[in-house]
Nucleic acid binder design. Structure first.
Lengths: 212, 212
DNA sequence: ATTTTTGTTAACCTTTTGGTTTAACCATTT
DNA sequence: AAATGGTTAAACCAAAAGGTTAACAAAAAT
């Protein structure tokens, strides 16, 4: 089986096949969604035969599962860690935004992917990522915000709104990228630069709003 | 043809068939996406026969097109109008948020729908909504923001970031609703209330951040 | 009242798609 | 040289989904 192979270069130049497939699948799944994706498309994109696809991954669902979990499991724990870290609020905000923007440079398809899944079946999704009882608890961050309010370091604000605002400003531009690119007449480089700016801009925007 | 009929009640009690179909299609398309939707599902949801579906709308694509355009054309011009209106900046922000939140109460599926389309084929999408040269120009709002900066009424900020922030905070919670609902442990009523609060909260958040 | 048009259905046909199988090929490893 | 694992092309199958047809019922027009 391929899974056991020690990733020896095959005759077809570029990398080992399994990764080629995974990359291709990621691309196709995230562009067309699970239902819209065709096994043939994935095979084509990976530059291989459809039979080989089934040789590596039994069926479409399995392939999707692998691609999807790989992505989500890599990323979600990261932001969860930031939320629950032991750092000052303003620092957390900056960490979150920075981490997220950087991740998107590598996996621009991820947010779309995740949103699709989360809309399809939220519970199933969460379960797959966090397992049985290991659900993420935004409680820590919410409490921290409440603390700051009580301590009078920031103005009175419902922690949930603040959290929503932060997450929304960070993620949405990537989800609606084509819209912004089109309406602000940006090319890819400009978009990247704008997102880079947001690493500073979003924290500033938030802090300016809530700091007393 | 049905389209010409003066909407006379047919034997099957509830309203005219065309609207039944449209409603059903809306529901199914927005839940499962264009590719995931089955004509049979739509027929079932509408409580009619599959053949009748094709009698009213030639094929799947046509039906999708109609449903989709109906929604988008109803809504997009509205926000465009707000952006280009002749009102003070802070008022515009409030108008935008209010209008959007209200619309979502009626069509909670719309943003998902639109994002799906816009990701599938941005140009095609924009063309369908705005036609040939009638593209929306966020220029007006962007300029207005720049004016306010120059006039010293708000702090220095790139208008594009401000616009992105506003749009993101408004739309994203609806797109990622299942995530927020789950993580903040909200029921439907609580979510609605939270969104209602955002009509005031978002403008306040923005204004607190940028007003000098 | 009878003909025509419109609305609706069940059954059928066609295409697409996921998935399998077979035979053959080629590099490595043994 | 033989065995092995990765790979391909091509053909095939079954199921699902889109789309069509023929016939019938209801409503409108004559």
């Amino acid at each position: 089986m391929a899974k056991i192979s020690k990733s020896i270069k095959s005759k077809t130049g570029s990398g080992n096949t399994e990764d080629q497939i995974l990359d291709a699948a990621r691309k196709v799944f995230t562009t067309k969604g699970m239902a819209g994706a065709r096994m043939q498309d994935i095979a084509d994109e990976a530059g291989i035969n459809k039979a080989l696809l089934h040789y590596y991954f039994r069926d479409k669902e399995k392939l999707f599962e692998v691609v999807f979990l790989q992505e989500a499991q890599k990323f979600f724990p990261k932001i969860n860690a930031i939320f629950n870290a032991d750092a000052p609020l303003f620092e957390k905000i900056e960490n979150f935004v920075t981490e997220y923007v950087d991740e998107m440079a590598e996996s621009p398809y991820l947010p779309w992917f995740v949103l699709n899944e989360i809309n399809r079946d939220p519970d199933q999704f969460m379960y797959k990522i966090w397992g049985k009882e290991n659900v993420p608890k935004p409680g820590k961050l919410l409490e921290q915000i409440e603390q700051e309010v009580k301590a009078g370091r920031i103005r009175k604000i419902d922690p949930r709104h603040l959290m929503m605002n932060m997450i929304s400003m960070t993620i949405f531009p990537f989800v609606a990228r084509p819209m912004f690119v089109r309406n602000l007449r940006l090319n890819d480089k400009q978009f990247r630069e704008l997102m880079e700016e947001r690493k500073k801009e979003i924290p500033k925007f938030i802090i300016d709003s809530i700091r007393k």
